[in-house]
């Protein structure tokens, strides 16, 4: 067993192709999921690879979140309002300790149904950039990258190098709603992220809603999104049909029927907040 912390991407890609290595960045999922007695062939630490940390704007207007970018770095970065939901989610990931070490890309690679980072990135139409020594770069939409519980489209010889977020066509607001049984350090019972763009009359012209912890992989509610177009967000009602794509489970955090009910409420709240309708006063 060995530990490698290369400083350039080609070296890292050459290494990962060599066998059963464990990629480590913040360690916030690697260590808790480690089983006694089983060790990888080697550790590949990606935190020192040049160009893999940090957030930048590409020439085409895409925002690139480097694969080794921590939640704290994301929160500190100046980003357009479309990223508000993602930043809000970042502040809800574990604790300051976890946010200082854990990475957004690691959250995606861990592929937990309750990953806080996934719904806010789904509503941004984020793409995952993968690289391998043999085949170079490829891009996968986030919804295709995460394939199931703890299952991703990452090939054994690939590394995630970044997350790309396309520019939004016009001004939008986003919001994130997390439901847990306590403040801080809590795995979500359910979570919802919403992106809303309004037309001149204040009606919904762009709607994207994503739900986490209510299906094996976080889902965009495309039916609801279509239904919302042209409606007045102040008169919003979420019905059971809007949530048809979800398949929550019963577990220690809550039963399935409760999750569905909570998601409906969270969708309404997230959409209203993303549309800048402040109902908090009389809620």
């Amino acid at each position: 067993m060995s530990y490698h912390n290369p400083t350039d991407l080609p070296s890292a890609l050459e290494l990962i192709a060599q066998g059963d290595g464990k990629v480590v960045a913040g360690g916030t999922d690697v260590y808790p999921s480690a089983q006694p007695g089983s060790a990888p062939d080697f550790y590949l630490d990606v935190t020192r690879i040049a160009g893999l940390s940090g957030i930048s704007e590409e020439a085409d207007g895409h925002i690139r979140i480097g694969a080794a970018t921590t939640w704290s770095a994301l929160v500190a970065a100046p980003l357009p309002p479309a990223f508000d939901a993602l930043k809000h989610a970042a502040l809800e990931v574990g604790s300051v300790q976890i946010q200082n070490a854990g990475t957004i890309a690691g959250n995606l690679c861990n592929a937990s149904p309750a990953a806080d980072g996934v719904p806010p990135l789904l509503i941004l139409d984020a793409q995952v950039e993968l690289a391998s020594a043999a085949r170079g770069y490829r891009l996968l939409p986030l919804a295709e990258f995460i394939k199931g519980v703890r299952l991703t489209g990452l090939a054994p010889d690939e590394l995630v190098t970044g997350i790309l977020v396309p520019p939004q066509p016009y001004p939008v607001g986003t919001a994130f709603e997390k439901l847990g049984s306590r403040r801080y350090l809590v795995i979500s019972i359910t979570m919802v992220a919403a992106l809303i763009g309004l037309d001149a009359r204040g009606h919904i012209a762009e709607a994207r809603v994503a739900v986490g912890a209510a299906s094996p992989v976080a889902q965009r509610l495309v039916g609801l999104e279509r239904r919302l177009l042209g409606t007045n967000p102040a008169k919003l009602v979420i019905g059971g049909g809007d949530l048809a794509r979800l398949s929550p489970i019963d577990d220690v955090r809550g039963p399935a029927d409760y999750r569905l009910e909570a998601v409906a409420e969270q969708c309404a709240r997230a959409i209203r907040r993303a549309a800048r309708i402040d109902r908090a006063a009389h809620e």
Binding site: Y3, Y31, S72, Q97, L185
Partner: peptide, 24 residues
């Protein structure tokens, strides 16, 4: 990483020492 008792500062930022590879 659930209790924070092992918190240390790494380049000034709090992290759980139990989740930090020492090589890092």
């Amino acid at each position: 990483g659930d209790c924070g008792a092992c918190t240390v500062l790494l380049d000034g930022a709090p992290v759980c020492a139990c989740l930090t590879p020492v090589h890092q």
